[in-house]
């Protein structure tokens, strides 16, 4: 068991930035990461909207440099999951970790982010890794000269769809609305790309294939017409769900399951902060997540300065 000043749950942009600030304040800080350092950014090929990188920057490399910076200033990183978070009678937080047991902390910043939603259709879970994917940059190269489907119409759907055109002979964007939600620049690129095809007002009802993906069954929402589109891969980008399991019952959440925080990332629980995609109103951008992390770490530092006697 280790007693930390500030425990940070989640090693994406928000969590790693919070760690840089906490460590530079000479606080004993730890980051718990249950998967890949960088969170969603780690599987983003090229990040083009992070200031300071006019030529873009590889998401995984950027996340690694966040981590190096946090570790250089003395933050600790543990690759494990936190399965429960509670407040003890002394006001200290208790964190149950999967590998190293129980730890305590005087302040906690939860920056656990969000995970991609599943479609929830037959065939999806059976064919994950067999043509069903949630990460174009991870798996796109396996679909050289094949036709694939990309489901969704937001930024990530279009960005990853464009990435897939490097490999696939055709990328069919399946979207349940008649227009995209993606940013104007991404839309311009998508419509100008001859490998991108658009199927509007349509949902995927079933993913077909024995052993690997062979096609998708589609239904047009306006006409009700159904058809099967033969594809070798299905890339699913249909929104995100907040990773709020630790927060439920502990802090107030909005209707979307994101934590209610004030402008300094404080929650309804003293000493508990939420930063990044998991907080209400998040812009869901790397740069704003990093900003949240800095804000939360400064607020946690302020909290530790104000409250030492009651927690000593």
């Amino acid at each position: 068991m280790t007693d930390y000043d500030i425990a940070i749950i989640g090693g994406g942009g928000a969590g790693l930035t919070a760690a840089i600030y906490a460590a530079r304040a000479r606080r004993r800080a730890v980051v718990f990461e249950n998967a890949v350092t960088g969170g969603q950014i780690a599987t983003t090929g090229l990040v083009e909207n992070f200031p300071g990188f006019p030529a873009g920057v590889d998401g995984f490399e950027l996340a690694q440099s966040f981590l190096q910076q946090a570790e250089k200033f003395g933050a600790e990183l543990r690759y494990e999951d936190i399965t429960s978070l509670s407040v003890g009678p002394d006001g200290r937080f208790r964190l149950q970790a999967t590998e190293s047991g129980v730890h305590t902390a005087r302040a906690v910043i939860v920056a656990a982010g969000a995970h991609y939603n599943r479609l929830g259709v037959p065939g999806e879970s059976e064919l994950v890794g067999r043509g069903v994917s949630y990460c174009a940059t991870c798996d796109g190269a396996f679909f050289q000269d094949q036709e694939v489907a990309g489901v969704g119409g937001g930024d990530s759907a279009i960005d990853e769809g464009l990435f897939l055109t490097r490999f696939a002979s055709k990328v069919h964007v399946i979207h349940r609305r008649a227009e995209l939600r993606a940013s104007a620049m991404l839309q311009e690129r998508a419509f100008a790309n001859p490998k991108m095809a658009f199927t509007w007002n349509t949902v995927v009802e079933r993913i077909e294939g024995k052993g690997q993906v062979e096609g998708v069954s589609l239904r047009n929402l306006e006409t009700g017409a159904t058809r099967t589109l033969p594809v070798g891969g299905v890339f699913i980008f249909v929104g995100q769900l907040p990773n709020n399991a630790l927060l439920r019952g502990l802090v107030d959440l909005d209707d979307g399951g994101r934590a209610l925080v004030d402008l300094t990332m404080r929650t309804s629980v003293p000493g508990l902060f939420v930063a990044g995609d998991l907080r209400t109103g998040a812009a869901r951008q790397l740069v704003s997540a990093c900003g949240d992390g800095a804000t939360a770490a400064l607020a946690a530092e302020h909290y530790l300065e104000e409250e030492p006697a009651t927690h000593g």
């Binding site: 994917s133 798996d139 396996f142 891969g233």
Partner: peptide
């Protein structure tokens, strides 16, 4: 998997 196409193909590997 970039250098070895046969085995990944045989096992239908589409995600790494």
């Amino acid at each position: 998997t970039d250098e070895n196409p046969q085995v990944p193909g045989k096992f239908g590997i589409r995600s790494i």
